[in-house]
Nucleic acid binder design. Sequence first.
DNA 1: GCCAAAATGTAGCCTAGGCTACTTTATAGG
DNA 2: CCTATAAAGTAGCCTAGGCTACATTTTGGC
Lengths: 155, 155
Amino acid sequence: MARKPSASDADHAATAKLPAEGTQARRFGKTRSAQSTALLEDYAELIADLLAGEGEARPTDIARRLGVSHATAIKSISRLKRAGLATARPYRGVFLTDKGRALADRVRVRHRLVVDVLQALGVPSEAAEADAEGIEHHVSETTLKAFAQFLKARG
Amino acid sequence: MARKPSASDADHAATAKLPAEGTQARRFGKTRSAQSTALLEDYAELIADLLAGEGEARPTDIARRLGVSHATAIKSISRLKRAGLATARPYRGVFLTDKGRALADRVRVRHRLVVDVLQALGVPSEAAEADAEGIEHHVSETTLKAFAQFLKARG
DNA sequence: GCCAAAATGTAGCCTAGGCTACTTTATAGG
DNA sequence: CCTATAAAGTAGCCTAGGCTACATTTTGGC
């Protein structure tokens, strides 16, 4: 650092005396990587839902449910395939692999838990559902456990 | 990233067999647009933090704290400028506009609230801090209010 | 059995948010 | 007052996740 003689100069020269930096960087990094899997999680959950409810998961339905164009849905589905979460034969719908099904299950459970906690905290169910959609992808295992415990403890 | 709600949405919805679709699509759409502002919020908060703590916010420090390369930080800073949240003179550090300061304040308050709620639910402070970083960007005003109320009610 | 409409798929474009590699500027220190 | 070095900035590349526009398959209705 060759600028002002501020506090950060010392940090740098003296082999990082700020202990929080590494931690914080790791935190943010985790947040960012969570975002990249969030979409895949949504797709997996939705496909499982459609397969259970309609018996098939078609790109157009997926697109409509997610509010994106069908082209976008198809592109995302190909990412799902690349990630080993789904399979699809042209014009024949989308299916989940074992891995995809496992992911969908985890996601569904987590979603329920987040919604329930939000409602327990007094969030109206409408908002709870909406916010959970975004929140759930950032809830760690540790936090999930705490949520479960909290719900159990209060009946 | 914000997608344009075009006529085809309505078309599809009109012939749809599933009743809950419109709502769900809107939910997901909101989640996605929240993601696009999440980074700007993080930057604004961090810059405010650095300005308060060190008296200046330099791209290198920002980059280190966020765990990204300085090139990435600089690019993001230029997005902040475009969004009217920050100003920066070459080689002279980054500053927040009134709008940026207001955003940073809101973000800081919200972050605290989310962390406090998580801890109140029994989440260890380490995990609470980490998860809050991701969660906070998806908490609506409604939910925020409920959080505040909840904390107040339990002392 | 044909044909139109709907679903599916492809191509090409955009922005955000990452990166590395290189260049330019400022400043500290001899 | 130079100059080495750290910070800042620039260029160019990549992937994800959006879109529109167009091409191709399926399929339902006659």
